[in-house]
Amino acid sequence: MEWEVIFKWLPKFYQGAVLTLELVGIAVVLGLILAVPLGIARASKLWYVRALPYGYIFFFRGTPLLVQLFLVYYGLAQFDVIRDSFMWPYLRDPFWCATATMTLHTTAYIAEILRGAIQAIPPGEIEAARALGMSRAKALFYIVLPRAARIGLPAYSNEVILMLKASSLASTVTLLELTGMTRTIIARNYLTVDMFFTAGVFYLVISFLLVQAFKQLERWMRVDACQGR
């Protein structure tokens, strides 16, 4: 191990890690917001409400993120309509393409988590809310969603870690996040194993910190106390 060289490049690695965190942060927060209506619709009893979210989730979970990324970044340029539209300055930029794709991708997974969580709520609790005279909307906001949030939180933390690792794909569309930065550095100093090792340590540290943060969040939301059946 060439520790001195590793230390010399640490600021660059840090820059890459910051970009990685930006990508992941935007994707999982936006994804969560988009996934709430999608997940609720996916858990609906009516087939025509369920159909569209089902198709969306099936497509995004059934194809690799790399393909989706290439479809958005390279693929959209095929259409003149998009090239001439006001969206083009954004869709030409790898950062926006990567965040958009990762958001759409993770939305599908989070929606599926949410569906599982909604369906795991004991029916008696929803019946109790309705028996107390709550409207369907009120029961959804005060009973179903808070309950589903606690059931789904552990799975959501898994999804965030998976997105952290998936963000390395953004390096294929020229973004210099942690993996991209590592490849650039390797092109400069040829210390392949040392540099990949450092990047790996960075990923491990970030995922360790995320896991700890989610543990705190679970404690704060009193997930354990609410699991009593």
Partner: peptide, 21 residues
């Protein structure tokens, strides 16, 4: 723990470019 904490892409790159020596 180690393998799950590091992106798959990084493993692929490491296996290909890192094992040359």
């Amino acid at each position: 723990t180690l393998v799950r904490g590091v992106p798959e892409l990084l493993w692929v790159l490491l296996m290909y470019y890192g094992t040359v020596n």
